[in-house]
Design a protein around this nucleic acid. Sequence first.
DNA 1: CAGTGGTCTAGACCACAGT
DNA 2: CTGTGGTCTAGACCACTGG
Lengths: 246, 246
Amino acid sequence: MTTNKYYDIYLQLKRKIMQGSYKEGDLLPSENALSKEYTVSRETIRKSLDYLSQDGLIQKKQGLGSIVLNPTLFSFPISGLTSFKELSDTQGMQAETILLKNERIKVDDVLHKKLNLPIGTEVIAIERVRKIDDQRVIFDYDYVNPDITGDIPDARLEQSLYDYLETELKLPISFANKEILVESVSDKDREHLDLRDEDNHLVVISSHVYLEDARYFQYSESRHRVDRFRFVDFSRRQHSLEEHRF
Amino acid sequence: MTTNKYYDIYLQLKRKIMQGSYKEGDLLPSENALSKEYTVSRETIRKSLDYLSQDGLIQKKQGLGSIVLNPTLFSFPISGLTSFKELSDTQGMQAETILLKNERIKVDDVLHKKLNLPIGTEVIAIERVRKIDDQRVIFDYDYVNPDITGDIPDARLEQSLYDYLETELKLPISFANKEILVESVSDKDREHLDLRDEDNHLVVISSHVYLEDARYFQYSESRHRVDRFRFVDFSRRQHSLEEHRF
DNA sequence: CAGTGGTCTAGACCACAGT
DNA sequence: CTGTGGTCTAGACCACTGG
């Protein structure tokens, strides 16, 4: 339960859209009408609607109103920062984790390039293989800052790293820079994953993860068998009045 | 030139961050200080800062201030809705387009599944191959609603479709649902693209594109040779106080 | 024309950081 | 404690849409 008016209203409107009380193409009640209905100011309503808009649930049009969009394509929240465990929970996949490594190491020159940390810095290196429907299809590497987390119990890594960090350590994970590439399969990939003969490539998702106070906290690399990868996104066009060149 | 205070201030602050007037880890002036500096209300400043935050340029922390983040990773705006032409312009690649097809067709059952349009609907089908550094590495399919665009001159398709739509037709392209998958190479892919022996797969980006009034307008499928694909994203964690199950 | 969303203000109170 | 960002208000004016 939150205590924010705008967030409560956002959730209520979201539920109504998801449940079909408002259908695709319908207009929401006007901002003035909503502000009366919920007895809040119009600016508060506008903040709630901004959230719906960012979710891709409505489209606002000046002079007309807030058009309800089709929420069906929206069921995969793979965009944003979401952990494997959360995904397998919401998607109802049968999933299992194999822990290969969980130890402190020093950053060498190879890691240096990936992590942007000085050579010799101590990090916790974690290697995990993810099994979905009895096939090993994802290879996860994580490097975290031990000054922030301390050592991490093996048992927690077989569940969710993020759950441990947020629930147990109360670490406020906040934002990430993410990159998606396709890379060639390495010998190590082939050893630990169930790959088919035609699999020459893996989809690799690399993330630099930061805490709320903007401290650099974790680098992760998640290597997916290509047929098990899917990325869904809702995006708005930036009408570029601005200069992009810097 | 815009006439919005919050947007002007956003651009000014953005420029200062990009140019290094504010460095990584610095705090921006407080909201009160900024509102005095620009002689606007604090809410207006907050709107500007919201934009910077969405861009991943600052991180706000209650009680502390707005922390400036590292803008270096941020130079690839492949996220969002961006056309091939815009990308090749900003990235300075040597690029060329080969137009294979530009004609009205009727939706058949195969297209029906992709477009979510009734069988028999008339659409403009466009097929283009993109050459980068003399190699044919991207195959683009576009299907647009002819009621909205009318026929499209061949010459314009060798440039940018989006440029034509926005500059010439003044169509307000607004948002899209996008999906990224990896698919097997088809015979048609192999015929039109310069693929290497080991290329069994392509990265496929599918988008459903809508106008400002939420009318469905275009479906596009962009098939990339895997080594020429890169996707960069900045994401904030949704602290899920909320239910994701619907 | 009346009604819609878009921008902006001046003020208030609260929750949180750092000292 | 002071200063920070977070929430919220009541009102104003503007730009746009539709009839």
